[in-house]
Design a protein around this nucleic acid. Sequence first.
DNA 1: TCATTATTGTTGCAATTGCAACAATATACA
DNA 2: TGTATATTGTTGCAATTGCAACAATAATGA
Lengths: 209, 209
Amino acid sequence: MVSIFNKISVNNQKKLLKLLEANTIFFKKDSAISSMIKGNIIGVVIEGYAQIIRTDYNGNRTIIEELEEGNVFGSFISSLNNNEYNVLTKEDTKIIFFDYEFIINFENNGYSYYNQFIKNLLEITTELIDEKNKKIEILTQKTIRDKLLTYFEINFKKTGSKNIYLTSSYTDLADYLAIDRSAMSRELKNLKNEGFITTKGRKITLLYK
Amino acid sequence: MVSIFNKISVNNQKKLLKLLEANTIFFKKDSAISSMIKGNIIGVVIEGYAQIIRTDYNGNRTIIEELEEGNVFGSFISSLNNNEYNVLTKEDTKIIFFDYEFIINFENNGYSYYNQFIKNLLEITTELIDEKNKKIEILTQKTIRDKLLTYFEINFKKTGSKNIYLTSSYTDLADYLAIDRSAMSRELKNLKNEGFITTKGRKITLLYK
DNA sequence: TCATTATTGTTGCAATTGCAACAATATACA
DNA sequence: TGTATATTGTTGCAATTGCAACAATAATGA
């Protein structure tokens, strides 16, 4: 995965952050960083792990995105009425914040590392689109079984392994796939009974690969 | 919406296309342009209208993305097994193709319009992420009613109008929302009966706004 | 214009799902 | 270590949905 600092020397990284008036902030585990999101910002996760979570008017919790090291998120989180978006850290997390407008409207006077930074951002956002497409691939499946199998397929393609280690709980997986937890549990049982998978704690093994 | 040629003079636009070895291709209405998608490409719709369509092993058709003027698509279309992706033109359509790797790895020797182009692409991909998020917002709704209402909400926010004019048919809308057409039809009827909306042909009017 | 094709509306029914409620485990932390 | 908390497993049941089949209407093109 491309880093925002790809092909930029450590020295220039520092200059860049100053030039673009970036803010580096540390968050403790289990803190909400939504308060930081004012205007059009871009956050880059340097260390740690966080989740973008939507809670709708029914109280339904959906994990919109998982943020690992190197991931980028931003105020491209469209917030509709009746919905609340939160970014929650699940570990101690270090994030660099940029002002999107500032970055885009910055008049470059020959800082090659600025151009490289923009290029890196382009690569990262392109990857993010790929992630979003995969998520859409899952969500457009009609049945829970097909959602699970698509999720497995994507994981298998990504890691090349028959084993899937959940980043977090089954509860979270259900929230990520936007399905009812107990219904997912039921379907996982069916998949086990039919010999498609086995599970051991938070490890799922695909038997049909 | 930002164009790939934003802040680039017509003269430099031509130079840019040559520099990046871009191909401009015209497609007739109702043609499949998938054949063009080899390797890691980026396509920019200059004129016309097209749809990215997935057909799964059940024969289910899903409209993944609608491509209007200025929109960008690419091989960030993750293709899993058992699924077929196609880009189909619904009108005569003009598309410029770029080689993504070529663009990214291009060593710039002082062409300022190249930097501007990369910046424009960044803005466009950022917007695309927003679109994807909105689609995910819809798809993560549990009921057909909530999917429709979320779709309405997004449209309303975008246009500021109570009237929604479908770009294409109700059949396509169902395929876009990834729901069964007849079930959607049933739910639209319910929404009408309960006074939430009225419809007249392909115009939907929101009465609760 | 007329005939063919595509879209839309409708409905019964079976399958799937969400929901609720609770038991069984596992995990966290005082 | 023990207790409170979180996660997982399970199930009945009602609600929602997809599917199929067909009629009605609209759009298309020869």
